[in-house]
Structures are given as structure tokens and as C-alpha cells.
């Protein structure tokens, strides 16, 4: 099972919405059994980002972890959702 972390600025509103969207998507694609979702705020996770297989963020992250993070803003704006989920799927299948 892959560990998917969802982070936003304070771990409140935005990551809650993103989590809901990701859960729906996992369900639609029969992936619920493959992924465990964690929700948090960016400052709590910076130092242990390697504990997760996939990281979705709606906030800016420090440069040193940038490469590990997938931009979750499309889930809020509706713009670029498909390519974003393709990236997530690639990480799940990796």
C-alpha cells in the first residue's frame, strides 16, 4: 500500500477538500485498497517527506522537497486535473 500525503498551509480547509477529491478518484478507479491517505500541514512534514510515496500539495513547498511534490491546485480550480491524476497514478503504479 502506498502512502499519499496531502498538505496545505495549515492543514485545514484546502487539504480537506483535496482529500475528498482524491478519495472519490481512488474509488472510481478501484484504487482504494492501494493507497492510504494522510493529511497535514506543510510545516509538520518538511522533515519527514521521505516517509511518503506520494505528496500532493496546495501550497508552496521549500525547494529541497519540490521534486517530491505534485501540485494539487488543479483539484481546486478544475484546470489541469487529468494530467495531475496521471502523475498520481504513475506514482501509485511505480
Amino acid at each position: 500500500m502506498k502512502k499519499l500525503l496531502i498538505i496545505c498551509g495549515t492543514g485545514i480547509a484546502t487539504s480537506t477538500v483535496v482529500k475528498g477529491k482524491v478519495e472519490e478518484w481512488l474509488k472510481e478507479n478501484n484504487l482504494t485498497q492501494d493507497v492510504k491517505i494522510y493529511q497535514s500541514k506543510v510545516s509538520d512534514e518538511i522533515n519527514r517527506i521521505d516517509e511518503y510515496d506520494i505528496v500532493l500539495s496546495t501550497t508552496l513547498v521549500p525547494d529541497n522537497i519540490k521534486d517530491r511534490v505534485i501540485d494539487g491546485i488543479p483539484l481546486l480550480t478544475g484546470i489541469g486535473i487529468d494530467p495531475m491524476f496521471e502523475k498520481v497514478l504513475a506514482e501509485i503504479k511505480r
Binding site: 480547509a13 480537506t16 477538500v17 475528498g20 477529491k21 483539484l75 481546486l76 480550480t77 478544475g78
Partner: peptide, 12 residues
């Protein structure tokens, strides 16, 4: 969550 999801649905 339900309200937030609805709002974000409208935004899209």
C-alpha cells in the same frame, strides 16, 4: 466537507 466540496465544484 460537503459544503466545501460544493463550493469547489462551483469553482471548476
Amino acid at each position: 466537507l460537503a459544503t466545501l466540496q460544493k463550493l469547489v465544484g462551483l469553482f471548476q
